[in-house]
Design a protein around this nucleic acid. Structure first.
Lengths: 313, 313
DNA sequence: GCCTAGCCTGCAAACGTTTTCACGCGGGGG
DNA sequence: CCCCCGCGTGAAAACGTTTGCAGGCTAGGC
């Protein structure tokens, strides 16, 4: 025998409630590609942090396209999203993002906003200097970088931090040793080839993100270049990286979950107090030596290009 | 000078529209863990297929917990989801899923439903027999399996297909060579250790999914076991696997995007015609030889357990 | 015992759409 | 010549909830 209420199985209509309360109970996550493991992890942590507050997560892709951003900005307004977290940047557009002017409270991650326009979460890049120091101590002088898209906040900041660190340690940056590309697996895979075919290839390389490091290692693998014997690699990455490449990587690390959690808290604080001054959160990042860097042996021929005959698992 | 309409910047309220039309424009994806690259890829393809139909994707986690399923089933009804796609199964619960009884149209992926209750998308397992044949041709007789959770549709079906294939080829299944576990990276990583410490370890192993294969390879790596020289590995996986482990793996393959696309089409068909007879879609799967299997050399000591001193990238 | 304050209950308005219906007009067919 | 139909416009009802308000009841204080 059921109670009357249970029998009726009354389920309140959240749409009707949202119409009256002005809160839909949805938050949007805007990413270039949810198939990228980093964004997957990000979405996971975000959902965990938002759920206790009664917010469900809507996942949207931009494919890094300006037009998609515009479509989304409108869609998300129509859908009455309570807030949005944007971890995507269409490269090169000088105009401010459509999300910037949206009336939806937003948090931008690794993407600088118009000054004072709203909240942002940024990865600290200061540890890059420690990484360079580490490489120099190991004897490296020709250090390359695969920073990602330079028309993008993350890529540009990393490149600038890298350049400043080299300068600080009185090293010259060879423009042949910079291969920007974007943040995709395939591009970084190709960058390995590009970099090692230079007339004077680097003996150490700095790579910009988890996914890029994964692609870069894949590329090295195909080329038969052994790490760290033939090439030292430092990644600007998160704790996620270790589950993508089967080894402890020397890296400037942030904690993947922390980035999303911080973004969630920033958004929730904004929803609680819409008029609070904009907040800029700096995510800690520390240099952690791993096994992908080693002392330079002068005798070795860096980046010997023999095709890998046998894949390693 | 702007037009009056543009000036007003009229944005229709999708909540109000949903209230009246009875369609919210949201579809839910229920997964155990969006951080798993396979589910990330799945979500990506799903969103691509659903977007043109005006459906936005809400991502939900169950963490494979029955209680979470119940919470979600209620939440998704409140939120007036137009449909849901469930790729998650809480293991071992005899009772039908809470999504089964929900009034929301649903598609179950790799999870059998109560007969005739609704739509499902299932991975074909027939090619497992081809994989076994391949291993036998290479001289293997001691073949192990890491199928995933046996209280789960996917894991159990794979195990049964595997057992049937062995029987068909007149091989005996050693219960020491079966390590179920679940679908997680860590568990499969540990399974490698378990399997190779058996008194009489297998010379070839069948692994149940992308993520499990990744963990299994990671585990082998740590143990210093070379593939395929010391151990042949076949994965039941998708095209995604190649971006997770840096080499062509011998596998029974489905196309990752196809699974999600098929699920999306099934859901859309259901929404168009709620009274159509339930549909059961079988996703094609083909055995594709790669480089993770090799002929058995009788002289070799399978699974020599020397700790890997040098990680391979 | 009476008055007032506080609480509970139930009713009505409002949220922003869609959809239906009525109304007026004009044209075409009977 | 009259009627009917179609078209376009505008008004009104409905969707299911929240919330505010009014009214009635109870309890406490004077």
């Amino acid at each position: 025998m059921q109670s009357a209420a249970a029998k009726l199985e009354f389920v309140p209509n959240a749409l009707a409630r949202g119409l009256i309360t002005g809160r839909s109970g949805f938050a949007a996550l805007v990413v270039p590609d949810i198939a990228d493991p980093f964004f997957g992890r990000f979405a996971f942590s975000l959902e965990q942090a938002l759920r206790p507050e009664g917010l469900a997560l809507v996942v949207c892709h931009t494919s890094e396209q300006r037009s998609e951003e515009e479509r989304l900005a409108r869609l998300l307004e129509e859908r009455q999203m309570d807030g949005l977290i944007c971890v995507s940047e269409a490269p090169g557009s000088g105009r401010p993002s459509p999300f910037e002017t949206s009336r939806i409270p937003s948090v931008f991650v690794e993407r600088r906003r118009v000054k004072g326009a709203g909240d942002e979460v940024i990865l600290d890049k200061r540890s890059v200097s420690d990484a360079i120091r580490h490489l120099i101590d190991l004897g490296h002088r020709r250090i390359g970088i695969v920073p990602g898209h330079l028309q993008t906040f993350g890529g540009r900041e990393l490149y600038l931090a890298f350049r400043a660190a080299l300068k600080k340690h009185r090293l010259k940056l060879d423009s042949d040793h910079v291969v920007p590309g974007d943040f995709k697996f395939e591009t970084s895979r190709a960058a390995a080839d590009t970099l090692l075919r230079r007339r004077s290839p680097p003996t150490a390389v700095f790579v910009g993100s988890d996914r890029m490091a994964q692609g870069f290692f894949y590329g090295l693998h195909e080329l038969g270049v052994r790490v760290p014997e033939e090439l030292s690699v430092v990644a600007f990455a998160t704790d996620l990286l270790e589950s993508l490449v089967a080894a402890p990587v020397t890296a400037c690390r942030s904690i993947s979950g922390q980035i999303a959690t911080e973004a969630a808290h920033t958004l929730l604080a904004r929803l609680r107090d819409p008029d609070a001054p904009p907040r800029s959160v700096l995510i800690p990042n520390a240099f952690v030596p791993g096994r992908s860097t080693a002392a330079l042996r002068l005798s070795r021929r860096p980046g010997k290009l023999t095709a890998a005959l046998r894949p390693t698992f």
